[in-house]
Design a protein around this nucleic acid. Structure first.
Lengths: 258, 258
DNA sequence: TCTGCGATAAAGTCATACGATAGAAGCGGC
DNA sequence: GCCGCTTCTATCGTATGACTTTATCGCAGA
């Protein structure tokens, strides 16, 4: 599953060696290929796979440590951490998740988070928005309305729409959740690609949210955003169903050719 | 400001060298001693302060990179990142914040997040809780009720109470926010230490939340949790006022002796 | 059986070296 | 004198080898 990163909010340089190693290890952990056991085999493994120095390997491990994916203790080895320890909302961890595994439960969890957070954010945005915020949200909406359904620029505009609402909240802590929401959204848009009806139907919902924010009507903005998120979840789950079916088909095919 | 870490949810080993360096750099960035300029001075700075090898320094930088505090671009230097880029909800970043600076705005932001997230979590917990969850929440409540107001075990129980509610949600993404909430709470409890009335008054509120969750009454649990958070914010801000006053006094004193 | 000490393995730390390149400084041409 | 090109340097990335620290495990002795 390849998610090409337009508007990537993370800074982990992917064309540096340690970044690649980190990603490789992370995906291995997230998919469950490495459980709570030692990551040790990888030291030799990566030696053989890509000839990578201890330096690069260690820096990759440090990154994963910082994100809670592994725990390195002096004598006992470097182990994959249990999932509760992971910083699931970290942009990189999220992007690795999406690189590894659809995992319906996790998608649901993320949407549930959106369901709680985004309406509140919309309310706050309605209360605090400046005219500059409005301009930004409106510009994003225009981008959505004018573009072709799942074109790159349109998707970008969709993400920008939601991000601009978070930005209007003037709350740094809340803002951090924006990246998680964006990642979820990006993922779901990717899944839905092709379902033009769903996209076109969501447009008026976006506009209604915008209008409520312009009107400084917090309750309305909140309610409309809640509706938008729920609709998004439903269409995403529908697409996920077909998508998973396709994937299973592919896997079956691969297994067959093997 | 020293916050002794009981129940630290983070894994960044503080007695390893790179951990100390990372913390030192992080605090420097968070307090604003290093703005968006290069972190370069520190390379020499740390050379003179603690003689630290490049390895340890680089690994510290990798950690900060992973948390969004700095951006290391191939040849142009390692710069402190703008605040929007920071993973403010990362447990370590939070703990560094609390180590560095009370910053009322940030406290408000975090409480606002709690205000949005915890009621939703309480609702979900009420809907999904198992008897084991109840046992855990109830045990935490007992610990709060039985202990002395700001004793370590009591604080631990308070944190456990809120964490148990998140755990009952069965939502991994939401669970990640628990650490941020816990950190906020721990900080506010530390500030409030001494204000026994506030603590004793909050006890029935906690019990009411517990009862609502036992009754599987999501709406009630949510409403009561919202009340609890708002009360907590108010008492915290009150304590923050006196605390800041004291700090200012200290600063004035220091300036005077200078 | 319990205690403690030492062997041992793995992470951590240090020093050094080389390559690549972005950005600055210097040089030359127009 | 201004602009563009070349060179030079600073800094990050990567590699390597040696040494240190720490914690686990097993063996030996009480």
């Amino acid at each position: 599953m390849r998610v090409r990163d337009f508007s990537r909010p993370t800074t982990l340089n992917p064309d540096r060696l340690f970044g690649q190693v980190a990603q490789k290890l992370a995906v291995a952990i997230i998919t469950g290929r490495v459980r709570a056991g030692e990551v040790l085999p990888n030291e030799d493994d990566l030696r053989s796979e890509i000839s990578v120095s201890r330096t690069a390997y260690r820096e990759a491990v440090k990154i994963l440590t910082a994100k809670g994916l592994v725990e390195a203790r002096p004598k006992s080895g470097t182990r994959a951490a249990p999932r509760e320890r992971w910083n699931l909302l970290d942009p990189d961890v999220l992007s690795w998740h999406f690189e590894a595994d659809p995992n319906e439960k996790f998608i649901r969890d993320l949407f549930e988070l959106r369901r709680f957070v985004e309406p509140s954010a919309a309310r706050l945005a309605a209360q605090r928005r400046t005219s500059a915020d409005i301009a930004r949200i409106e510009a994003a909406y225009r981008g959505m309305a004018d573009g072709a359904p799942y074109a790159e620029s349109t998707v970008r505009a969709d993400l920008a729409f939601h991000e601009a609402i978070f930005a209007a909240c003037q709350n740094a802590a809340l803002q951090c959740l924006a990246s998680a929401v964006i990642a979820t959204l990006q993922w779901s848009l990717l899944l839905k690609t092709g379902d033009e009806d769903a996209y076109i139907e969501s447009l008026p919902d976006h506009e209604h949210v915008l209008l409520a924010i312009i009107d400084r009507d917090g309750d309305l903005a909140s309610a409309r955003m809640a509706g938008l998120v729920i609709d998004s979840l439903n269409t995403t789950l529908a697409s996920l169903g077909t998508h998973v079916a396709t994937e299973t088909g592919k896997i079956a095919k691969i297994k067959h050719t093997k």
